[in-house]
Nucleic acid binder design. Structure first.
Lengths: 154, 154
DNA sequence: TGGGATTACATGGAATATCATGGAAATATT
DNA sequence: AATATTTCCATGATATTCCATGTAATCCCA
């Protein structure tokens, strides 16, 4: 399956519209989706983006609606409440909810960063910072004999 | 299947009418329903909302009517007794029973919060509180190796 | 392998449609 | 008849669709 790779910087116009990178769009289409789902990253410094299939899988894992069960993860509920499904318009654009943009201080442009099976949206300055940090961490790990350091998480 | 995602804040007019978010309506229509079922949440601080199909599935899991069985949970009976089916009018609105609104102290406006296969209706202030609380809990859990496997990892 | 032609893409603005919401009219209830 | 409930209509705000354009990438053929 095709993966979301590379990073792209696109502009956000005054109506809040942003072009989803063409390559990302084609991957979504390939998977059968014409919309993307956004939700805040756990750390709160980026937006996670995936397709509806990922959300459905998540719901399946936490179990369906059961009003008597206490064990349904309440953080999963928050996730569902904070997530939004955005249709991709005829020109390949989405409108990122203002609340998300404000939360991250995104203005004017943003970065789409591939993550393999999903991707993230960043404020350019924050993304650079993070890249630096991750590279530095990888360098340290390498000198102490790590294995393929950043391949999985973060 | 489309999921109920995101949160919407809508006004309740003096006649008690509230617009069901258009996206939620379209999902219900997609599933073949023109009405929604409401009943108090277990914790009592929100209203659960779903379609009749979900209620039927719920009943099935609980166990249908059996005059010789005592083991059917009385909770289930209460649930069915407290539930009401509300038609969605031509403009996409419902009228939430006054008793429910009073119980929750809802006045003027309410929040529709997606939960995947269902959604909830909240008093805005209570919803915010809950979001904060759950996020905090998730943060703590995470620092000590929480669940929800990489789905919400940064 | 240049370099011109063509296409794909991101972006801006304008036209159009949808949505939430308030009030009035019509219908039902008692 | 009086009141409550439901249906219908109007409207401002918001979101979506449509079209135009500059630019960058790709193609193509001499």
């Amino acid at each position: 399956m095709a993966l979301f790779l590379s990073t792209h910087t696109n502009k956000i116009d005054k109506k809040g519209r942003v072009s989803v990178p063409a390559r990302f769009r084609s991957i979504l289409t390939e998977r059968g989706y014409g919309a993307i789902v956004l939700f805040p990253s756990f750390e709160g410094n980026a937006i996670n983006a995936c397709d509806m299939g990922v959300m459905e899988g998540l719901l399946e894992r936490i179990g369906g609606f059961d009003p008597f069960s206490e064990d349904r993860e309440s953080d999963a509920d928050v996730l569902m409440a904070e997530a939004t499904e955005l249709p991709i318009d005829g020109d390949g654009r989405i409108i990122i909810p203002l609340t998300m943009l404000e939360q991250l201080g995104i203005e004017g442009e943003c970065i789409f960063a591939g993550r393999g099976d999903s991707f993230q949206i960043w404020r350019p300055a924050d993304f650079e910072d993070r890249m630096k940090a991750v590279k530095e961490r990888a360098r340290l790990k390498r000198s102490s004999g790590g294995s393929l350091g950043g391949a999985n998480n973060e």
